[in-house]
């Protein structure tokens, strides 16, 4: 693999990181919740798809079409039942509740599916690729995930800026009390934000599952990727998150070129450098 190839792969991976990170950014932006179970939710989606594919024999795309809305619904319910209550119980409570949720999800997966490493078979599509140049080949799967991620981000952007509910989401992020003076029921608005977050995390989880192997304990390290993408790009900006994801993806991909053991370290160091020297992120956020 050449350097150019590494950059292209990193950019494509970055799109997926961005999609995965969007939910984290949205939940923090609107509700000030850092969802520490974010990574585990993606892994739950991966395992759910795995179980559905092997259990029902349905094609993968049908499973995706089922899983993503199911997660949106789950997200809405999680917010209304669990997180809403924690918002009223002090600033530490949300962190603890999502952390507890993360431990619960991880260990249920461990009991149900064992600690074995799995992959979701995307068929011939997942392994096929075309050549961009002689040394640079692009997998259909990575390209599709990248395009799908960008489409999802664009869709969320349109929702946030063009619809009344989307505006109220951004308004609630600025000032919840005043948003309630506009007639916004914050519980519903928060539910919608969480539903979007869960839907995107499920989509990202399914794509991760097709790209690379997963096991029940991988959630927290995935969460770190998402958090890094959000912070590098700048909180509160969807395009910042996309940029952050790409910076992270390219950094990982280039350092893997030098030494595969450096992959994670390079991402972490870029994240820490951004925190130290540009804490507002590369693209300082304007809108949620």
């Amino acid at each position: 693999m050449g350097w150019l190839n590494a950059i292209v792969q990193g950019l494509l991976l970055g799109g997926l990181y961005a999609l995965f990170a969007t939910g984290l950014s949205l939940m923090f932006g609107v509700m000030r919740i850092v969802n520490l179970a974010h990574g585990d939710l993606a892994v739950v989606a991966s395992f759910l798809a795995l179980a559905l594919v092997s259990g029902t024999g349905l094609p993968l795309w049908v499973v995706m079409v089922v899983t993503v809305p199911l997660f949106a619904l789950l997200g809405y319910l999680t917010q209304r039942v669990l997180l809403q209550r924690s918002l009223g119980a002090g600033p530490l409570a949300t962190l603890l509740v999502t952390f507890g949720l993360s431990i619960v999800l991880q260990n249920i997966l461990l009991e149900v599916f064992s600690a074995d490493t799995r992959t979701l078979d995307g068929g011939s599509f997942a392994t096929a690729s075309f050549h961009l140049t002689d040394s640079t080949s692009v997998g259909y799967l990575s390209l599709t995930t990248f395009l799908l991620a960008c489409a999802a981000l664009a869709g969320i952007q349109v929702f946030l800026s063009r619809t009344g509910l989307g505006r109220m989401l951004r308004a609630s992020a600025d000032d919840r009390e005043t948003a309630s003076l506009m007639g916004a029921d914050s519980r519903h608005v928060y539910g919608i934000a969480t539903a979007i977050a869960f839907a995107t995390v499920a989509l990202a989880g399914l794509m991760f599952a097709m790209r690379s192997s997963f096991d029940p304990s991988i959630g927290p390290s995935r969460l770190i990727f998402a958090f890094e993408a959000v912070v590098i790009g700048g909180l509160g900006s969807l395009w910042g998150t996309l940029l952050g994801g790409m910076v992270l993806g390219v950094a990982q991909s280039l350092s893997a070129q030098v030494d595969p053991a450096l992959t994670l370290l390079a991402g972490h160091l870029i994240f820490l450098a951004v925190l130290a020297f540009r804490p507002q992120g590369l693209l300082a956020g304007r809108a949620a």
Binding site: R170, D174, D175, M182
Partner: peptide, 30 residues
């Protein structure tokens, strides 16, 4: 509070409290 808006009450809060990341028109539409 959120149900009082359709009931016919609107408050201009102390200190304006505009939504800072929204444009003027988006604030109005809110």
């Amino acid at each position: 509070a959120h149900k009082r808006v359709p009931a016919g009450i609107a408050l201009v809060p102390e200190g304006r409290r505009l939504f800072r990341s929204l444009t003027v028109e988006e604030n109005l539409l809110a």
